[in-house]
Structures are given as C-alpha cells and as structure tokens.
Design a protein around this nucleic acid. Structure first.
Lengths: 140, 140
DNA sequence: TATTAAAAGAAAAATATTATCTTTTATGAA
DNA sequence: TTCATAAAAGATAATATTTTTCTTTTAATA
C-alpha cells in the first residue's frame, strides 16, 4: 500500500479514490493549482466529483502534512505536494508559480532566529518578477 | 502639503479625508490590519464611511505605491504602509503579524537571482512561529 | 455480506472582495 | 467665493471563494 494510504489509515481517515486522485494530481504537477483548477482537471475522471470534496480533501491532506497551502497574493489559495519550506517564484506576466532551487537559502530560518524572540517553525518566501517567456514578450 | 497629498494630486487623484485617514491609520500602526479592521477603527471618526470605500482606497494607495498588500495565508489581505520588501513574522498562537528587522536578509534577492532566469523585482518572506507571549501561554 | 462511521456530493450559507449606481465633494475656473 | 464637473464616497447588489449543512454513498471492519 502506498505511504499516503498508510498515513491516512494511521490517522483513522478513509482512503478514497478522490483523496488519492487529488494527492496524485498535486504530486504530478509543478503548477501549484487552486482548488478550482484541481476540480476541473479531475471532473472528467470523476464525473460526480464536487468542488466541496476538493476543498475538504485539501484540508485533510494539509492537516496530515501531505500538502501545503500557498498564497502568493491572489484571491485564492494554491496547493503544493512539496511540503518543504521551499521558495516560490511568481511571474507578474503570466501569473504562473514555480519552485526555486533553494540551496543557498537553506539556512534562512537559522539566520532569522538570531533576530527575533519568536519561536520560528516555518517560513514562506515568494519572489515576484517576470519569467523568461514574459521577459521576451515584454521586450518585443 | 503632505507628500502623500502631493503624490495623489500628481496622479490626478483627489485628496480626500478618507484617503488620508486610511493612510495615516496604516502609518501609525504596526499590526498590519485587514480592510475590515481598518473600517471598524475609522467608522467612529467617519460615521458615513463605507467598507467599499476602504477597499477602493486601499487599491488606490497600493497602486500609487504608498502601501503594500500582504497575505500571510489567511482568508483575507492585510495592509502595510511600509512598502519596503521587508520580512514578516506571523504568530501561530495569536495570529498577529509583526515586522522582522531585516539587516541580515538584505541581499536575499541578489542571492536568489543567481538561481533563476526570472527577472526578479520583489520578494515576500513570511516566518511563522510563536511570539513570546504565546510561547509562555503554551508552556503553562 | 452486513453494519456503520466517515466521506462524497448537492446545495445553501458565509466571507471577502468587487462592481454598480446615486449622492456628495474636491478641485479648478470664472 | 461661487459654480461646474469629474471623481470619490456611500449604499447596495453582485461576484468569487470557501465553508457548512444535509442526504446519499462508500470504505472498512466484523
């Protein structure tokens, strides 16, 4: 059995096709979709799927630590199956949200701890700018 | 005349008591309020003030660069008269949002530029954890 | 295979934000 | 200083996103 299924069972939660489908979709995309986008992508495979199920499933998956919720400053949340405290790139041009390789920013939280008396547990770092394609468009 | 008033005029926008009040409120608080909170604080001084006016004003102030919009992962936006790309601390306990002195994180964007072909223009960095008061509460 | 608690699905409700329309007001000209 | 007017304020409706409620269906265990 897949480790996500094991984790769900451990928490006393049911392993449903919808839950696995939403998790797998998030694991197989790099585009950090919204609930709406997830719904639209799954409704062909799951014609009875409801948007409420997507929201409820995302809540569950978030609570058991299988996904994380992002908000890059749009009207809605995006979801990411990479639960590491990694950095995101947001394109002002097309609005896409990508991951940034974090090697150099690794110890950001350690550095920040020196400057606050908060007990820090995680961070969210968003960079905003223009992706290569949008840069090209703008220069024409 | 105050520089905010000058800036509004330069952009062909009217200098209204509501706009100045919202900007001043943001400049005199460290709590990064939401539109709702701003409205509640101003409605005693401006009994006719409408929530729509708060939203429209925040949009205007944001567009001319006098304030910035934050989203730390709540259902709503917060606003900040400090328009520098500075770092925020979010308390998981009480939900308050504070500023973090940024001295060490100054060159974050420069560092990130080495790792992406995006043209970066700004960043948002949120740290999450527990403020001193909430740490104390939790340890009891 | 039957039982049952939990999840899915449908629909309504709640929230946050934006848009529309009318009234009021800031601003610049007379 | 008053007047004209375009823009903003204010009231309200609309929209969008998310959550809740309720009924039906299903996963999991006996």
């Amino acid at each position: 059995m897949e480790e996500a299924a094991v984790l769900l069972k451990q928490k006393g939660l049911k392993v449903t096709p919808q839950r696995l489908a939403i998790l797998n979709l998030l694991r197989n995309t790099k585009e950090h979709p919204t609930a709406e986008t997830i719904y639209k992508k799954l409704v062909s495979d799951f014609p009875t799927m409801s948007l409420a199920t997507v929201y409820k499933t995302l809540e569950v998956l978030k609570n058991i630590g299988l996904i994380q919720e992002l908000n890059v400053g749009e009207g809605s949340f995006r979801y990411d199956a990479n639960t590491n405290s990694h950095t995101h790139l947001v394109c002002f041009g097309c609005g896409k949200v990508e991951d940034l390789d974090e090697s150099v920013l690794q110890n950001l939280i350690e550095e920040a701890k020196k400057h606050t008396d908060y007990k820090l547990v995680e961070q969210k770092l968003y960079f905003y700018g223009y992706c290569p394609a949008c840069q090209k468009m703008l220069s024409n």
